[in-house]
Amino acid sequence: MAEFRTRLKELRAARNMKQEELAELVGVRRETIIRLEKGLYNPSLKLAVDIARVFGCTVEEVFIFDYDE
């Protein structure tokens, strides 16, 4: 079972970016960003790539899956 978590909040705070601003940039609602930050929603590959591009990092750096081996 893989545990899903994101570094969205951290990356956003580093850039002093609001949830609303990030949502606007990637074309989703603020509620979606809130759920992503809480790890309650698995984004589509396109949204994951879009978010990673906003922060200038790779998808793996933003979205982390911890596998219990």
């Binding site: 956003r12 970016m17 609001k18 603020r30 509620e31 809130i34 930050e37």
Partner: peptide
């Protein structure tokens, strides 16, 4: 469905 889990606990943003 939309309301569940969409409340932000963020202090400085949003």
């Amino acid at each position: 469905l939309d309301y569940n889990g969409s409340k932000s606990d963020d202090d400085f943003v949003g």
